[in-house]
């Protein structure tokens, strides 16, 4: 069972990151749910979504005590870090967040997602860098399933973006394995 929160500015791809992971979980035959924040809080402020991937039946799709929090900006980290379960995992975007995690009962990983994405020539794949790191750390879904999900979700005329997204995931995975 993995209960996850993805949070960041609108435009950082946090909603699609969560959706992609839910999709991948579904392709692996697991039960999944994805709930977005909606309404005015989406306009300009932080956006977040709650994702559950599990082999059990999903009771509550709401995530109050997440196992994993992905924070793409500081307000998101401030908001969701305290909610993490003991022993949970916080992955934050160290390109935009200068402070480190403030709890010692969780695992904290900072990853310079924007820098890595820029090195790949597409700043918009920062979310997929984090996705790669998340998959490598948690094994919640196989990278292949997320790649399949990408192929299904991206319309055909945008399939030229598949390679850079896949590279981003690989770089994210490498970063956390060499780091630890």
């Amino acid at each position: 069972m993995a209960e996850m929160i993805f949070a960041g500015f609108g435009g950082q791809g946090v909603m699609s990151m969560g959706m992609m992971l839910a999709y991948a979980g579904m392709l692996e035959g697991k039960n999944v749910s994805w709930i977005p924040s909606y309404g005015p809080e989406m306009r300009g402020g932080t956006a977040n979504c709650a994702v559950v991937v599990t082999s059990d039946e999903i009771g509550s799709p709401f995530v109050t005590d997440p196992d994993v929090v992905v924070a793409m900006n500081l307000p998101s980290m401030d908001k969701f870090e305290p909610r993490l379960k003991k022993g949970g995992l916080l992955i934050y975007n160290s390109s935009l967040i200068e402070r480190e995690g403030g709890r010692d009962d969780i695992e904290v990983i900072g990853i310079p997602a924007n820098e890595i994405a820029s090195e790949l020539g597409n700043s918009r794949v920062a979310n997929m860098v984090v996705m790669g790191a998340l998959l490598a750390k948690t094994g919640v879904a196989k990278p292949e399933s997320v790649k399949d999900a990408l192929r299904k979700v991206l319309p055909a005329h945008r399939h030229d973006l598949l390679p850079v997204n896949e590279q981003a995931m690989e770089r994210g995975a490498e970063y956390v394995s060499k780091d630890r």
Binding site: M19, A22, M26, N31, V32, S33, W34, I35, P36, Y38, P61, F62
Partner: peptide, 10 residues
């Protein structure tokens, strides 16, 4: 409710 309308599930 808003949740059921907005959420995604298989």
């Amino acid at each position: 409710d808003g949740t059921l309308g907005q959420m995604m599930e298989p």
